[in-house]
Amino acid sequence: MLDAGFGVEARLPVLTCAPDDVVVATVDSPIELVLASTDDELRLVAEAQNEAYGAPDATDHDAARLRRTLDRGGFVALAVDTATGIGVGAGLCTPPHRGVSELAAVGVRAVYRRHGIAAALTSLLTRACPTVMFAVVLRKRLHESPKFLEKKAELNSRPSPVRLLLADRRTIRITVAIVVLTTVQNFGYFGIMTWLPSYLSNQFGYGLTKSSMWTAATVLGMLAGVVLFGHLADRIGRRRTFWIFQLSAAASVLVYSQLSSPWALLIGGAVMGACANGMIGGYGALMAELYPTEARATAQNVLFNIGRGLGGLAPVLIALVASANGFPFALGLLSGIYVLAFCAMFVIPERRGAELA
C-alpha cells in the first residue's frame, strides 16, 4: 500500500489481555455458553450476530465464513437460550498472529442485552485462546525433514503411496508380513485387555476393584515393555528384538493361563503385558525403514489399521472359544498367534542403521 501511494496517518493503540488475567464472567440459566463447532451451532452464531448488528438474515455463506475461522485456528463462541434453543449472542477470536488473537464480532440480540452475555462471551473466548495459540505456534515451529522436502518435489511424477506398498513381489511379501504382525499385535491386545477382567472375575472371583488393579498391572507392564523394546531394537536389531518378544509373549500368555495365586497373577500379568504389547514400540521404526519416504506415513497408517480391523475380531473369537472350552483354554490358545508373527519376521529384512530411502 505504501508503494501505491498510501501513507500512515496514525497508529492506533492495541489493548491486549493475557488469558491468565481475564476476569471470569458467567451468566445465569437458561443462557448457556459453548464454543461452537457443529454446523448447527455456527448457523445459530450467524443468526445472532446478524440480528445484533442489523444485518440481513443469515445464510449458508455466513456459516461457511465462520467455519473457515475455525479451520484456520480461531474460536467461535455462542450463547444459547436453552429454553427456546435460539442463539442469543455470539463472538469470535481470529486465528492468532504473532501470538495475539483479535476478539471480534461480539454481539447480543437486543432483547437479551444488559444481562452480562457479552462480557461472558468475551471471558470465554479470551480464556480459550491459549489452546489455539499453542497449537498454531507449535505447528509453525515444526519443520518437515529434508528427505521429505526432497521427495515432495518429485511427488507428481511418482505413483500413489498406496501403490508403493505393492511395488514389486519383494515389497508385497514385506507388506503381507507387516499386516500379519499388526494383526497379531492388535488381536493379542484386544483379546487380553477385553477379557482379562472377566477372566479374573469368573475364574477367581475377583471383584471389580481387584480385577481392575490386576488389569492395571498388565497395562503398566505394557508401558515398561514398550520402553524396553525400543532400547533393545536399537542395540541388537529389529528382527532379533521382535523374535525375543514374540517368543516371550507366547510363553507368558500360556503360563498366565495356568496361574492361580493372586501374587502370581499380578506379577505374571505385568510380564505378559510387557511381552505381548511391548512390541508396539517397534512398528514405527520398522515400517519407516522398509518403505520409501513418500509412502512411509501411508504404510504406518494403512497397514497398522488393517491389523487393527482384523485384530478387532479377537473379543468375539475368544468369547466363542471360551464359551465352549473355558477362559483358561481360550487364553492359552491365544499364545499361538505369536508363533505366527515369529514366522512372519523371517520375511522382513533387518535394516537397523540403514539409510532411509
Rank of each mutant, 00 (worst) to 15 (best):
L70P: 03
V76D: 01
L42V: 12
T84R: 12
V80A: 05
G74I: 06
A79K: 07
T38L: 02
T59I: 08
T84G: 06
V45C: 14
F75G: 02
D57I: 07
E41T: 03
G87V: 10
L66T: 10
A63V: 06
A83S: 15
T38M: 02
D40E: 13
D60I: 02
G73P: 11
R67P: 01
N50Q: 13
P56Y: 10
L70F: 08
A64C: 08
A64F: 01
V76R: 00
A46M: 09
E41C: 06
L33N: 02
D62A: 03
F75S: 09
A55P: 00
A52C: 04
A52P: 01
R65V: 10
T38G: 04
F75Y: 05
V45W: 00
H61Y: 06
F75E: 03
R65W: 05
A79D: 01
R72A: 15
T59K: 15
R67N: 08
L33H: 05
D81K: 04
A55K: 15
F75K: 06
R43I: 04
D57R: 15
G74R: 02
D81I: 04
A77I: 09
L66G: 02
T59F: 10
E47N: 06
L33Q: 03
D71V: 08
A77Q: 05
R67G: 05
F75N: 03
E51F: 01
L42I: 14
L70H: 07
G73H: 12
A64P: 02
G74N: 04
V76P: 01
V34I: 10
A79Q: 05
A46N: 07
D62L: 03
D40K: 02
D39A: 15
L33M: 12
T59Q: 14
L78A: 02
A79R: 08
L78E: 01
R72F: 10
A77M: 05
L70M: 11
A63L: 06
T59L: 09
S37M: 11
A77K: 09
V34S: 13
A58W: 01
A83I: 05
L66K: 07
A55Y: 14
A77L: 04
L42E: 08
N50Y: 01
N50V: 01
L70Y: 06
L35Q: 12
V45I: 05
V45Q: 06
D57W: 03
H61C: 02
I86F: 00
D39R: 15
Q49E: 12
G87C: 08
A63P: 02
D57S: 13
E32P: 00
L70D: 05
A83G: 15
S37A: 15
R67F: 00
E47P: 00
T84Y: 01
L42A: 10
A63K: 11
A83L: 10
L66A: 09
D40L: 03
L42P: 04
L66P: 01
A48G: 07
G87I: 11
A63H: 04
D39K: 13
R43G: 06
S37Y: 07
L78D: 00
L70C: 09
R43F: 08
L35R: 14
A46Y: 00
T38V: 08
T82C: 03
A55D: 11
T38I: 09
L35S: 11
T38E: 00
A58S: 15
G85S: 08
Q49R: 13
P56K: 12
H61E: 13
L42C: 11
L33I: 14
S37P: 00
R65F: 08
A64G: 12
A83H: 11
T69D: 09
A52T: 03
A64E: 09
A36R: 05
A79Y: 06
N50E: 07
V34A: 10
